[in-house]
């Protein structure tokens, strides 16, 4: 067991956890933040993407002990009260999801992109989002959703 202290979506969290706890399990089972999804479990599909100190990581390949002292942002952390993040609104308005299982990961990856590069080209969006698989949309509307936010077309 290891004691860890971190901030999750701005809230301080202290826990004693087994050394082998994965970040995804801490979030989902320990903190009931089930917005982060587990798909492939090998770092390919991107459904488990969260931001660790602002950087996108596969929470299924990250030991929770290595998040000690870090700031973790999950999909639940994007909403301010009832106000959706522009990416969240864009994914609704532009059809950027269907079943929704990959969506938290898509939105977290997109957030990391826009944080680093607020006005990406379509090619930059496609390339950045390559690590987030979606089986429903064929990606066209995901790219449109992100482009819409980058172009300032979405207000919340």
């Amino acid at each position: 067991m290891k004691p860890i202290q971190l901030r999750v979506n701005g809230q301080a969290v202290e826990r004693d956890i087994p050394d082998n706890t994965l970040l995804i399990d801490l979030l989902r089972n320990g903190l009931d933040l089930t917005g982060t999804k587990e798909g492939c479990s090998v770092g390919v599909c991107g459904a488990c993407t969260v931001l660790l100190d602002g950087q996108p990581v596969s929470s299924c390949l990250t030991l929770a002990v290595t998040a000690d002292g870090c700031e973790v942002t999950t999909i639940e952390g994007l909403t301010e009260g009832d106000r959706l993040h522009p990416l969240q609104k864009a994914f609704i308005d532009y059809g950027g999801f269907q079943c929704g299982i990959c969506t938290p990961g898509q939105i977290m990856s997109a957030k990391a992109l826009l944080d680093e590069n607020p006005h990406p080209s379509k090619d930059e969006i496609q390339s950045w989002m390559m690590g987030n698989l979606c089986r429903c949309t064929g990606y066209y509307k995901i790219i449109e959703s992100i482009q819409a936010v980058a172009d300032g077309k979405v207000s919340t």
């Binding site: 982060t36 999909i75 969240q88």
Partner: peptide, 9 residues
């Protein structure tokens, strides 16, 4: 059902 899906709820 969009709001529940994009917020992780």
């Amino acid at each position: 059902e969009g709001p529940s899906k994009v917020t992780g709820q």
